[in-house]
Write a protein that binds this DNA or RNA. Sequence first.
DNA 1: ACGCGTTCGTGAACGCATTCACAAAGTCGA
DNA 2: TCGACTTTGTGAATGCGTTCACGAACGCGT
Lengths: 231, 231
Amino acid sequence: MSEQGEFAVSPSIGGRHREIPEASVARLPVYLRALSGLAEAGHVTVSSEGLASAAGVNSAKVRKDLSHLGSYGTRGVGYEVDELVHHISNALGLTQRWSVVLVGVGNLGHALAGYGGFATRGFRIAGLVDADPSRVGEQVAGLTVRGIDELSEVVRTGDVSIGVIATPAGAAQEVCDLLVEAGVTSILNFAPTVLQVPDGVDLRKVDLALELQILSFHENRKSGVPAAMSS
Amino acid sequence: MSEQGEFAVSPSIGGRHREIPEASVARLPVYLRALSGLAEAGHVTVSSEGLASAAGVNSAKVRKDLSHLGSYGTRGVGYEVDELVHHISNALGLTQRWSVVLVGVGNLGHALAGYGGFATRGFRIAGLVDADPSRVGEQVAGLTVRGIDELSEVVRTGDVSIGVIATPAGAAQEVCDLLVEAGVTSILNFAPTVLQVPDGVDLRKVDLALELQILSFHENRKSGVPAAMSS
DNA sequence: ACGCGTTCGTGAACGCATTCACAAAGTCGA
DNA sequence: TCGACTTTGTGAATGCGTTCACGAACGCGT
């Protein structure tokens, strides 16, 4: 009874393990971070419950999420921390090193360039680029700022696939187009504006003002409606 | 036939207009920004289709979202830009000015303090706080950095309801607890760690490393599975 | 005044994500 | 070896968000 058919998907080459839902993908980095903490604290194994509380979610979600990677837990025991770190890193593609170009070296750009999270998680800053000629040549975080006209070259010679936009809103779409044209296929946008990208290019955004406004909504709700004081 | 019945919900006092779904709330700031652009470009009215393309979503979503605020569109015409800005601002609680305390004046903290998005959208930085004694007294963005021991006082005297955490990961939970204890009810966390807050406190996070890892996943998928690379 | 074209507002259908709940599979002590 | 206990992995149920599709309402030109 070798029931191959639809379950015999090779977990190795080609098709990982089905598709991992987007919502799960977004939580994997959180698990990874929680597991690092647990490993440092000396835990060899961890249960879904333990990982859940470290990651700030519930255990059912942890089990569902991890089940998308394969069956790496042991019933009655839990998950081996090191092994899980390896599998998650693998699923996220963190076993290989990705190169990043950072465009816009203003206040925020400086902070990002100096941010430790790049290097520690396998991301390499292949170049810093800015449109302001007075900034070109400046040394930031051990790198020399280059002109926007060199962006294409930086992307090609540095094997860059990820672009980070930290420019003012007005310049963001133009920079985005240049990045795409140069061959970048993933973009992280910090500029407070909506960007258009062609199919095949992944775009994520980080938006401070937006987050504050969402908090404002909830604050407003709290102060406006002092609980369920109807009746 | 004055069909009142269930449509005669007062949109003024008390119960706004039912509950606005979280997903809609998260898009309202985007609409607001798109509308600002449209207003500057001279548009007096805008259709759901027009707003949708400016905001990077589809028109059905726009109409559904806006319907939660009330019926402010005109069939056959669209929405009046100014009026819509007003209603969205109102729903988000942006007609009143919220005070913010920023904890952690490192690289990122500097960038945040200098970020224009605070002031331009009705948020006031009531104080900058840092635990490092060598930073206390320093002038940043026109404000004097104060010690962490003054946090509680800053919150109270400044009528602060929102706290922004831009400290290293190790200090974040402690700072978070202090903020909550001081009376802050909304927290925006930039530190790469999971925070625990009691019920009644809203928590949002902005996490660069997490975003990069999600992009990494998609890059990995793209390079691993050349997929439908037709013609 | 009236019909035509446009666009909103919304019930219904659909799909994705979360949660529930439990059988299966393992550990561990006696 | 065996039985009690723990914890995973996963179908099923539920809930939330998105999309569809269309009636209702409005402006405008004639």
